[in-house]
Design a protein around this nucleic acid. Structure first.
Length: 428
RNA sequence: GGCCCUAUCGUCUAACGGUUAGGACAUCAGCUUCUCAAGCUGGUAAUCCGGGUUCGAUUCCCGGUGGGGUCACCA
């Protein structure tokens, strides 16, 4: 009989979308538990019928699923009233709780100092006297938060309660209730909170706070997980970019920070770029294609083969997928799919265009790679002056002041299109 | 305000009494270079303050200050 199996839970209330703080709490529970063959439970705390909404519950479920934090079991408190009623009646019968004059059920507070150990912070003492005979249920079938939590943690045999440190204030109430019903005490771990850059609580006015916002902006779940893990935790070595598997094996509760951490977009962007770079080209092309605007798809030479060839240069400066949309709106991507319009002045000079075209036309279609194009033109460009040769070539192909280098662009466009654009430039 | 938690570069963090206080993001400079981006190299930058304990404190203790949390028939 093994009695040392770890059981944890993530217990959000469906009164709002899953936000980054909740996601981080879920992640730490998940990493801690799955790193040691434990059981990770999702418990929807929807005892407040008024404020709980199905759409929020769905957002929590889909958010966790997107991050890959699948629970082993899922419960809904609204489906467990029979269990709560039983406990409430028992507490009433044992006179550990009583029906107050105002109609609700209150706990008989023993009014003493509650002492508990937090795995991260050590011993914590809180005098429960200030709490008074707090309300634990509206009636015998409608428990309030603290009661429902204690009953469920006990029924589900939760071994570790890992939650945000705003839960510290509730801990004495919950411990008192555990003792009143003879339940054992789980190990408490209160995680530091995630703060906005201005060091205040993360809220909507700080921009994206819901996990779905990040999904929509085009962050990869792997990057999000990595980033969230690094908010309040760090491996024993210097690694910063870690896969889910690496996180799972490296995660240790005793390396979790005590102080609050500020959410840093720059680092998230950098991390996402790291994962984007590692993404397989074909799948990356699919992801990028999803973010293209209809206007771009409608361009005359649009084709997925060309997009696929352009993926490396796009990914190079891509922090999040939504930037693709921005580039589309700026027209920055148009030259990949249609002949560019530009002024002769931008070209600077047309002197070498004919020579370039002639040299490139010697390359067969299948030889038209960036490396071959470069080696074909490099010596000539060096002799004639690279700026004199390469700048006009690049403008002829892209029509832009800023772009990837002309060898790569030429390879993406292909032999025929490249030669056409070079020919057109000579007519200006 | 009471109670509780907390405090290393701008940000995320390493250092479990002895280090030139390390890494990453951001930033700056240089390299590369036809432009942009990426990449590479280097730089600037921190132990909140005051007392202790100790031969020696980022590290342990106390106080202050700052920040956060919490004080519902919400969770």
């Amino acid at each position: 009989m093994k009695n040392n199996v770890v059981i944890t839970r993530f217990a959000p209330s469906p009164t709002g979308w899953l936000h980054v703080g909740g996601a981080r709490t879920a992640l730490f529970n998940y990493l801690f538990t799955r790193g040691q063959q434990g059981k990770f439970i999702l418990r929807i705390e929807d005892t407040d019928r008024e404020r709980s909404k199905k759409e929020y519950e769905e957002s929590i479920l889909s958010g966790l699923s997107w991050l890959g934090l699948e629970p082993d079991e899922t419960y809904r408190q609204s489906e467990r009233t029979a269990i709560y009623t039983e406990y409430i009646k028992k507490m009433l019968a044992a006179d550990r709780a009583y029906q107050a004059e105002d109609g609700v059920i209150r706990f008989r507070n023993p009014n003493r100092v509650v002492n508990f150990v937090d795995q991260l912070r050590g011993e914590i003492n809180i005098d429960s006297t200030d709490l008074g005979d707090f309300v634990i249920a509206r009636n015998d079938h409608e428990p309030l938060y603290n009661l429902a939590v204690v009953i469920d943690d006990h029924e589900m045999k939760i071994t570790h309660v890992i939650r945000g440190d705003d839960g510290i204030a509730n801990t004495p109430r919950q411990i008192l209730l555990q003792e009143a019903m003879g339940a054992s005490r789980p190990i408490y771990v209160h995680l530091p909170l995630i703060l906005a850059p201005d060091r205040t609580k993360l809220s909507k006015r700080h921009g994206a706070v819901a996990i779905t916002d990040y999904e929509r902006e085009g962050y990869l779940p792997a990057a999000m997980i990595n980033f969230l893990a690094l908010l309040g935790w760090h491996p024993a070595d210097d690694r910063e970019v870690l896969t889910r598997e690496e996180l799972l094996t490296a995660f240790r509760l005793d390396r979790v920070q005590k102080g609050a951490a500020v959410f840093d977009r720059d680092k998230l962007n950098w991390l996402n770029h790291q994962f984007l770079k590692k993404y397989p080209a074909i799948e990356m092309a699919e992801l990028i294609e999803k973010h293209l605007t209809d206007e771009v798809r409608a361009l005359s030479q649009y084709n997925t083969a060309r997009l696929l060839r352009a993926v490396p240069t796009l990914v190079e400066r891509l922090n999040k997928l939504s930037e693709i949309t921005t580039w589309c709106q700026n027209g920055e991507l148009n030259f990949y799919f249609t002949s560019p319009q530009y002024a002769l002045k931008l070209l600077r000079n047309t002197a070498h265009l004919a020579t370039i075209a002639k040299m490139l036309s010697a390359l067969a279609g299948e030889q038209f790679t960036a490396d071959n194009i470069k080696s074909t033109l490099w010596d000539y460009a060096t002799q004639a002056g690279r700026a004199e040769v390469l700048w006009p070539m690049r403008v002829a192909l892209t029509g832009r002041e800023k772009s990837p280098d002309p060898f790569i662009v030429a390879a993406i466009l292909g032999r025929e299109e490249t030669l056409q654009r070079l020919a057109y430039a000579q007519t200006l």
